[in-house]
Write a protein that binds this DNA or RNA. Sequence first.
DNA 1: GCCAACGTTGGC
DNA 2: GCCAACGTTGGC
Length: 156
Amino acid sequence: MRYWLIKSEPTTYAIDDLERMQQDHWEGVRNYQARNYMRDEMEVGDLALFYHSNATPPGVAGIARVCEEAHPDFTAWDPESKYFDPKSTPENPRWMMVSVAFVEKFSRLISLEELRDYPELKEMVLLQKGSRLSVQPATQKEFEFIRNLAHEAVHS
DNA sequence: GCCAACGTTGGC
DNA sequence: GCCAACGTTGGC
């Protein structure tokens, strides 16, 4: 299995929304590289860090699991949707999405600022200059390191 | 195929 | 709101 990091602006769709839904389509990805990761490499059972972008502060809010492999993103066909793309049709869908299931919400947000503090994470795709992919791979070590941070008892 | 102009992302 | 870094579009 593989590990991922998926970004969402919490004002649009936060980890709390996924918790409420339990499972949902990961719609609205309109970047080819991010689409390709979903279409070609994501498998059911893969785990993803759920990242809140454009937030105060930005950071990893929890974990989701891929629960359905890539299928056409039908929001691209809906003229009323903010994700509408007239170049995508049911006959020739341009955009794909997976479905994800809620796994857990961290008891504390692991902020971007904190992530930058750890040498163990300095190779993370998220932390590279200019990196802004909304679906990106993470290593097992990175994933587990961050999950462990979230699960650690808080020391004073 | 080049590349200028424009649009988006996302931290700050 | 600013702006750096990317990505896309479209004329040529």
